[in-house]
Design a protein around this nucleic acid. Structure first.
Lengths: 247, 247
DNA sequence: CGCCAACTTGATGGCTGTCAAGTCAGGTGG
DNA sequence: CCACCTGACTTGACAGCCATCAAGTTGGCG
């Protein structure tokens, strides 16, 4: 099951995945590495995998042995409760790392699903640990990435635990805007890759509520919403909404 | 501010903090280390710090340079929003690690406050990274600890995002029970170290709601509640509540 | 013994969930 | 090319869970 000889299973492609030539390297794992160190990371990450829309990289319960860096596309991760309810725990775009949930138990604890046709770089975890014992900068940066994931989760907990619907959606949009900006896209105009239901699941709201709040934001002239096409008209005001209980 | 010469500031005591003789070592950082490796960890963790009730180990914004292992006592971590609202992001007991939020930015992003008189072992992070480049088992276990923190946060997100008040409190009690059990205490009888307000903040509920749900559980004969003294009478039923939307 | 924080309990209201109907956009097949 | 179909979204009406406000109770501590 793990050591396929030559025939490749679906959606697994032997593409050279060189970090050294990747446009996302300043956002991804190679941050802070010298050229020589980068070459060593290239030796490790030599596999790319394409994931079609609605396919998964991994499912909850599967054995963990690699992390995945988003090279292109968009992903969600979600956990399932036995009664069918599920909770989206994160959205991931280019340069972000998926799969760290699996390290602790050596099995994945959530599903990672592509929201559009995407590509990920496969990072065999055992080899990453090997290399990061030799390359200090890699070790340190990897720790930072994991730590930031924890801090990000705390932000979501704050959002879920003590914000109202409008604040949640405003915080969500501001966050997306910042992440698109860091990737060279427009801070104010983008397409949502996820459905209202997925946004709602992430924010602890029902899809109808998400839709209603979008409409309210539009009526207030803060954003323009046309299905999945979002244009943020007044970012400062949106940021202001986040810190203000109601009015 | 960081390099106090000989005079010790309050609540900082030069106590030998040997992992090798610590009763919590099977739950804490030394898991999986050989005797020789344990000695090397002892060299690193040679400082213990007492923290009185309601004092903090660190506050949000302070520079990060160490992790803290709970040796005795009980802690909460919480993040603050500018408007004063705060969110408890976690409770920590013996053998658990606090402070990983600070690695990413080299500054702490939350407050870590003692809920009773407590003691922590100070783990200088730079030296932990040094040692874990040499001791594979330490490196791997540390990664597992961080990963589990992420998984734990996902659990809380699930709880906050898609559970009702009764389910949240039931999940909270079951979780506490399991952690007490792992430490050799009774699974069914314990004292809560936190107030109703802190429980509520963690669970995304108001303190009145927490109190009401406790009363309901008591009326149903599932737990016996006397202020902070909790006795769980029917653990299976409590677990059942977690997966069931209402009835 | 008295004070105060923490907790409990009741009454009321509002935010968001639920149910339902309708609209929109994109894709398929005739 | 256009009708049709389906999934995603929007909007309305109503209800329920939990927040809010308020008053009392308990227990610990000086």
């Amino acid at each position: 099951m793990s050591s396929a000889p030559s025939a490749q299973p679906l959606s697994l492609e032997r593409l050279r995945a060189a970090c050294s030539t990747c446009g996302l390297r300043e956002l991804c794992l190679p941050v802070g590495l010298s050229d020589g160190e980068l070459d060593r990371l290239d030796d490790l990450i030599h596999l790319r995998r394409t994931v079609k829309k609605s396919q998964s990289i991994y499912r909850s319960g599967e054995r963990f042995d690699a992390l995945y860096a988003v090279r292109s596309g968009f992903f969600k991760t979600s956990v399932l409760l036995e009664d069918g309810r599920d909770q989206v725990t994160g959205f991931y775009m280019g340069g972000e790392l998926i799969g760290m949930d699996g390290i602790g138990t050596e099995h994945h604890t959530c599903d990672a699903v592509a929201l559009e046709d995407s590509e990920v770089c496969v990072i065999p975890f055992a080899r990453l640990e090997d290399l990061s014992r030799e390359v200090h900068a890699l070790q340190h940066h990897f720790h930072k990435v994991m730590s930031r994931e924890i801090v990000r989760d705390h932000g979501v907990m704050m959002l879920l635990g003590s914000m109202r619907a409008e604040e949640r959606l405003a915080a969500f949009l501001v966050n997306l805007s910042q992440r698109f900006t860091a990737r060279g896209y427009s801070p104010s105009e983008f397409y949502l890759r996820m459905t209202r239901e997925e946004i709602g699941s992430y924010l602890g709201l029902k899809l109808e509520t998400v839709s209603r709040v979008f409409s309210r934001f539009q009526d207030d002239g803060m954003v323009s919403v046309q299905q999945k096409h979002i244009r943020i008209i007044d970012i400062p005001r949106l940021k202001q909404v986040v810190g203000h209980p109601s009015c």
